[in-house]
Simulated scan of single mutants.
Amino acid sequence: MEIIMIILAGILVAAAVYLILSRSLLRVIIGTSVLTHAVNLLLLSMGGLKTGAIPIYGETVKRYVDPIPQALILTAIVISFAITAFFLVLAFRSYKELGTDNLAEMRGVPDDEQ
């Protein structure tokens, strides 16, 4: 099962890189969001997909699940949500000011130099 998760994370990273390298600002924002989801999936699979009890010290618990990868992923989800919201507001504001979401036009590169 872990191999399937790692392959899925690789596919998500490839799709995210494709989206980040495009000219549209909205695609770049979606690409960064997909990349954060891929990293979260990779962190979860690196922590190990195992079953067990909650990590409370007791005499009856023999196996427990490590809570550190889940805590890291929860923190990463909150941070990626905040950054995505900031990127969306920044993209909306730049679209209102410049009238385009094309990154080449935002830089001021003429069409013949692309």
Rank of each mutant, 00 (worst) to 15 (best):
M1D: 13
M1A: 15
M1W: 12
I4M: 13
G10A: 12
G10Q: 03
G10M: 11
I11M: 15
L12V: 01
V13Y: 11
V17A: 14
V17D: 04
V17C: 13
L19N: 10
S22W: 00
R23M: 05
S24L: 02
L25F: 07
L26K: 05
L26F: 04
R27H: 13
V28Y: 07
I29W: 00
I29G: 01
I30S: 09
T36V: 05
T36S: 15
V39P: 01
V39K: 00
L43V: 15
L44Q: 03
L44D: 01
S45R: 02
S45A: 14
S45M: 06
G47H: 05
G48H: 05
A53H: 09
I54L: 14
I54V: 12
I54K: 08
P55F: 06
P55H: 06
I56N: 09
T60A: 13
Y64G: 00
I68N: 06
P69M: 05
Q70C: 00
Q70N: 04
L72K: 04
L72W: 08
T75H: 14
T75V: 14
T75M: 15
A82H: 10
A82M: 15
F86A: 15
F86P: 00
L88I: 12
L88H: 00
V89F: 13
L90I: 04
A91R: 02
F92I: 05
Y95A: 06
L98S: 08
L98M: 09
G99I: 04
G99W: 08
T100D: 12
T100H: 09
N102G: 04
E105Y: 07
R107W: 02
G108T: 06
D111A: 14
Q114C: 02
